[in-house]
Amino acid sequence: MTTDTITTPATTTGPRTPPELRRHRPSVRTRVFRVLRQALMIAVVVVALYPILWMIVSSLRPDGHIFGNPSLVPNTFEVSNYTSGWNALGAPFSTYLLNSALVVAGAIVGNLISCSMAAYGFARLRFRFQRPAFVVMLLMIMIPIHVVIVPQYVIWAQAGLINTVWPLIVPKFLATDGFFVFLMIQFIRGLPKELDEAARIDGAGHGRIFCQILLPLMTPALATTAIFTFIWTWNDFFSQLIYLTDPNLYTVPVALRSFVDAQSQSSYGAMFAMSVVSVLPLVVAFGVGQKYLVRGIATTGGK
């Protein structure tokens, strides 16, 4: 342990309460601190919530009354934006939501399996070419997509898989998202090694150590991966645009851009309405997923 400034952890007794509540009597300083903190939080909430509220209000305004109106007061209820937006693009908007959901589901499963396995390999195993392998993994994160998209497209075209969801899902099962591999490596390295070694002494192999010891402790990292994969894949425009050509396979971000054309009249009201619709799954996913962000070593008893 490298934290030399603290004393040995004491055994836990009694209910876990935030440390500052344990003080016998909150000092004036503490109370001021708490009020300030709450005020700051509320200010940040306002800044963070403003855009989504504005989007909702704008989605209820008729075209032509959206721009130049930053107000949050909903003075019109143009529900027709929702009905017309839902049906504006050939297929009902549910098609795009479902397509996106399919891609997202595949991506999440793929990332969870492949990235956690790769991370275990990097963090806990010692093998030949480990350093070059790690460098390659980082290179994957560093190269701009715009110069590898054409070679990658050629590969998928040769495999005859353009206009399918495979180019969007298969890479996730192959751990090409270096971000998450690296994320989980850092989490695994934060877990006490004694756990592994105790299990090894009990005769557990790598498979068991990984599945039974580390994975349960990695819940926050896995939840982070799932949530981020959800949100980033849901919002990923470029690769979905490139690989999906049949409008019946279009995903939400591709469809959303189709409302707006820089050179002609655009349906901004419909675009905002469908933007609101398409943010909802994200909000729900985050709301559901966030409780897993906080489970982990803290709730499993520590070491």
């Binding site: 054409v150 497209y153 050629v154 645009l241 490139i242 050509t245 591709v254």
Partner: peptide, 25 residues
């Protein structure tokens, strides 16, 4: 006939990529 549509910017990115990949509409 299958129609494929995109917004102006995305259109040219997609057309360039698919043409480069020998797969243009």
């Amino acid at each position: 006939v299958t129609g494929e549509f995109a917004d102006w910017t995305g259109y040219w990115d997609k057309l360039a990529t698919s043409t480069a990949g020998g797969n243009s509409p």
